[in-house]
């Protein structure tokens, strides 16, 4: 490795790094804000689904053999899934926004603590998404296993 690329005091954030980090923070901020809007839309979608299920329930109540509880459970289940998805999606957006804001402050004011804070939030975001991915893969593996076992018996 070329010796002149190494700083005497370790790695430093030079102008080029600053430009990259600043741009990453700008795009990150945009992604986070759009993510919050999408979270809101998901919750709104859940509310619309529940209202539609309730309206359908009222319209179907005249039919013979109609079970009221089925629609209530369906609507509540749907709303629960939508809200869970929105909550799960909310946190990585929050960490990304914190990363972007802290990075902006760090770069503007040469604030070492904010730089560390910014990278900490980036780490938390990646860790969060990684854990969610592991959980989802485990659920898929579990479903796959159950499907194979039920097909074998």
């Amino acid at each position: 490795m070329d010796q002149n690329q190494q700083s005497i005091f370790g790695l430093s954030v030079d102008d080029s790094n600053r430009a990259h980090l600043s741009e990453a923070a700008k795009w990150g901020r945009f992604l986070a804000i759009v993510g919050f809007v999408v979270c809101g839309l998901i919750v709104l979608g859940g509310i619309i689904m529940v209202l539609s299920a309730n309206r359908l329930q009222n319209e179907m109540s005249d039919y013979p053999g109609y079970r009221r509880s089925a629609f209530s459970v369906f609507g509540a289940g749907l709303a629960f899934v939508y809200i869970v998805v929105a909550v799960v999606y909310f946190f990585p957006c929050l960490f990304l926004l914190r990363f972007s804001n802290a990075m902006k402050i760090a770069l503007a004011g040469n604030d070492q603590d904010q730089l560390t804070e910014s990278f900490k939030n980036l780490k938390v975001m990646f860790r969060y998404v990684g854990i969610i991915l592991i959980i989802l893969l485990s659920i898929y593996a579990f479903i796959f296993l159950i499907a194979i076992l039920s097909a074998a018996t």
Partner: peptide, 30 residues
């Protein structure tokens, strides 16, 4: 909070970045 020669990747920042990089690699490969 202001270092003498501008921002640098100190021990704490390096350890945080190192940890973030591990998770990022897992996510990227998946």
């Amino acid at each position: 909070n202001q270092p003498l020669f501008g921002l640098s990747i100190d021990g704490q920042a390096a350890s945080t970045i190192s940890s973030s990089v591990q998770w990022a690699r897992i996510l990227a490969i998946c």
